[in-house]
Computed example of a mutant assay.
Amino acid sequence: MESEIKKRFLTATLSVILFAIIYSCIFYTPDFGFFWSILFASIFASPIYYFIGIPISLLIDIGMKNIEIKSKKVKYHLSFGMYSIAGILAGVTFFIISTQSFLIKEIIIFSTIGIIASNIYFHVSLMLSKVKLNQYKMYT
């Protein structure tokens, strides 16, 4: 169980970095600077990944273990859909809490950002599940 938690924190850390880079590429403004954009995105994304993303991913993975699906393709698409829904909910919740408003255009933007963020986590998690983390000294 301890290695599973370490894997989730490593997944969240790598996801924050990747998300911040992607976010900065999409919303880059020359006045702000690319490095500062990455830092800014990381500061906002980190708590969401660690405090919302990790618990939700645990719930999704528990749910997926309780569903018997033999096809890897169907299991992938179901997981992708569940992570996407979680991303939408996280994005909309973050927007409503931070702005205290309900503007459709911005909700669509934040939903899209949430989908991207949650599926970055999902795919980094899939990638790390293929790597045996116990072979590295820092995880033994």
Rank of each mutant, 00 (worst) to 15 (best):
Y83K: 06
S98C: 01
I115L: 08
I108E: 03
A12Q: 02
F34G: 03
Y50E: 06
N66H: 12
D61T: 06
K72H: 13
L128W: 00
L126G: 15
I48G: 08
K6H: 10
F40W: 11
K137V: 13
Y136C: 06
F122K: 10
A41R: 01
T99K: 08
M138H: 13
S111A: 09
T11P: 03
I116D: 08
H123N: 15
V124Y: 03
K65L: 10
I5Y: 11
T93I: 08
G81A: 04
S24F: 06
I54N: 05
S71D: 09
K73Q: 14
F19W: 08
L128G: 03
F19V: 07
Q100D: 14
I115S: 07
F80W: 14
V131Q: 08
A41T: 02
W36G: 12
V16P: 06
Y23Q: 08
I88V: 14
V124A: 06
L59P: 09
H77Y: 15
G91C: 00
I113H: 04
I116Q: 10
F27S: 10
L39W: 11
S84H: 02
F80G: 04
V124T: 08
L58K: 13
K70E: 13
A45K: 06
K137N: 15
A90W: 05
N66G: 11
A86Q: 08
F19T: 03
D31C: 08
G114Q: 06
I62S: 13
L103F: 12
L59H: 07
I17P: 02
S118N: 08
K72F: 11
D31F: 09
T112N: 09
K130P: 09
I38N: 04
I52Q: 01
I43E: 09
F35W: 11
F40Y: 13
G63I: 05
L14C: 06
I38E: 02
W36V: 00
F102S: 04
S84V: 03
N134A: 12
C25F: 10
S84Q: 04
V92K: 00
D61G: 11
I22V: 14
I62G: 09
F27W: 06
S46W: 06
I69N: 04
Y28P: 04
I43F: 07
I88P: 00
E106W: 05
I116R: 10
Y76P: 04
I38W: 04
V16C: 06
K70Q: 11
I48S: 07
G63F: 02
T11Q: 05
I21C: 03
